[in-house]
Design a protein around this nucleic acid. Structure first.
Length: 187
DNA sequence: GCCAGGATCGTC
DNA sequence: ACGATCCTGGCA
């Protein structure tokens, strides 16, 4: 399978909302024992560091958030509700605690089941805690440039899902998805 | 050490 | 609307 160029670390080392928006249309690639499992990113959420009450980074630097507060272009993988893995990509310079959650993919190759929801994305691409802290410039887990360009003006912007506990931060427009794409987890 | 709660999902 | 299931952070 022919893939577009891999995203370099400099892509991730920028303002988180911009990275989140530009991740739409990019490919997520997990090479699983030689088999490429590939999906197009259609839905993401931005998490903005220690000030963001919805973010894990709001607790500051702890054993759990070490990777989140580390260098950009790495995977932050965590277990939620005792059963689902979720994948984030770390953004901005080291020490900011910012990341983008990958919420849904359009399946392109060798995905294992549904890909509409953050837990399902990890299940379908066989991503678990083994990838926590993984370098996204590696050859077995990485992102690529979009196959075709995305119109920035068409991106749908909504509040994030499942963060009702976060007060005013729950309302902020930090969820982004491709308009009309059937693999977005919720309208 | 103990306990409340969670960036979810499938089923009822 | 609810249960599964276990890691985390906070507090004693």
């Amino acid at each position: 399978m022919e893939l577009p160029p891999k995203l370099p670390r400099s892509f991730y080392d920028r303002e988180t909302i911009l990275v989140a928006r530009e991740l739409l249309g990019c490919l997520l690639v997990r090479v699983d024992a030689g088999l490429p499992r590939v999906g197009k990113i259609v839905e993401v959420e931005a998490y903005l560091g220690i000030e963001d009450r919805a973010a894990h980074a709001s607790h500051g630097l702890t054993p759990r958030t070490r990777v989140l507060y580390g260098a950009p272009g790495h995977a932050y993988v965590y277990l939620i509700y005792g059963m689902h893995w979720c994948l984030n990509v770390v953004t901005e310079p080291e020490g900011k605690g910012c990341a983008v959650l990958i919420r849904a993919l359009e399946p392109l190759a060798n995905t294992d089941g549904k890909t509409s929801g953050p837990g399902l994305v990890c299940r379908a691409l066989h991503i678990d805690k083994a990838f926590h802290g993984h370098d996204l410039e590696s050859s077995d887990l990485f992102l690529t440039e979009p196959v075709e360009p995305v119109d920035p003006a068409a991106i749908v912007i909504r509040p994030r899902i499942g963060v009702d506990y976060a007060g005013a931060w729950a309302e902020k427009p930090l969820r982004f998805y491709l308009p009309g794409n059937r693999f977005v987890s919720r309208k």
